[in-house]
């Protein structure tokens, strides 16, 4: 439901990848802008600051120090526990996402340094099946959290997801518990977790690990919430307020600590981690 709205580009946000070519039309200001400038600004519009959808790979590059990144658990791929078929069989859907993104599933995990601070990191990619969380996403995130706990390092997770992955049914739902339980242990060890919310972070992902940061940071104008706007509208039969379920809405309602533009994210994360994880400063 959430995904539908996003695919149609609701709320002025368009998660579509920047098309190939020299120029790109910004969905924020509708101006045609030079693509290389957009890329140099970490996939944000040089005119209006609109944040384009960022691939997980580029996000890792943007956050971790050059040459420090070690990916872990790269090889995990979905099986098909329910034998789920809709217009397409689930394995075919996964193969399609893999071909489109070059990723095995919707998250990359690993560790490295962030301005010299040793940290574990998980980054979701919305292009892969709407960033949905099934077994692979749940398992990889749980492993990266556990690895952070074991090495006494902080963990940062950058979320971008429509929620739990329908095609794995209740097994997807239980990944919410698995990841949250790992975070409970990480927290009991007094180790920091910073959650970064990007467009969009909704439903089962927002209702589990994405909401559990010691510090929660949102990118500007990201769509963040539990229930998709269309479902709410259909239920309550009234119009939703302007800016409903945006980062700014969440800030106003006390749900996030900070709104940080993408270009400042790495410096802001490391500034916070120097306070919360001085032992990880190399």
């Amino acid at each position: 439901m959430v995904l539908d709205r996003l695919r149609r580009g609701g709320g002025g946000k368009d998660p579509k990848k920047i098309p190939d070519g020299l120029w790109v039309k910004c969905p924020g200001c509708t101006k045609t802008v030079f693509k290389r400038l957009v890329e140099e600004r970490l996939d944000t519009c040089p005119e209006c600051g609109h944040h384009f959808t960022m691939t997980a790979e580029r996000r890792v590059e943007a956050l971790m120090d050059a040459g420090s990144w070690k990916e872990i658990d790269h090889g995990l791929t979905s099986s098909d526990p329910l034998g789920f078929v809709d217009s397409k069989a689930y394995p075919a859907r996964i193969a399609q996402s893999q071909a489109k993104t070059g990723m095995k599933d919707a998250v990359i995990t690993g560790h490295g340094t962030m301005n010299g601070i040793k940290s574990h990191l998980g980054v979701m990619d919305f292009r892969f099946n709407g960033g949905s969380m099934g077994s692979v996403v749940g398992e990889k995130l749980t492993r990266v959290i556990e690895a952070a706990t074991a090495t006494k390092q902080p963990v940062v997770i950058v979320s971008s997801s429509g929620g739990a992955r329908m095609q794995e049914g209740v097994i997807s739902l239980m990944q919410m518990t698995k990841t949250s339980a790992a975070l409970a242990r990480h927290s009991e060890a007094n180790l920091p977790y910073i959650s970064v919310l990007t467009n969009p972070t909704m439903a089962g992902v927002m209702a589990s690990f994405a909401s559990l940061g010691d510090v929660i940071i949102a990118e500007p104008k990201a769509l963040i919430g539990f229930t998709g706007a269309r479902v709410i509208k259909n239920t309550i039969k009234q119009e939703l307020p302007e800016g409903f379920q945006t980062s700014e809405f969440c800030m106003e309602h006390g749900q996030v600590d900070l709104i940080v533009p993408r270009q400042e994210m790495k410096s802001e994360l490391s500034r916070i981690l120097r306070y919360l994880a001085p032992q990880a400063v190399g």
Partner: peptide
């Protein structure tokens, strides 16, 4: 969980 404006404002997730 309830899908509504107040629920979102008060942090359903």
């Amino acid at each position: 969980a309830y899908p509504g404006i107040g629920a979102e404002e008060r942090g359903q997730s």
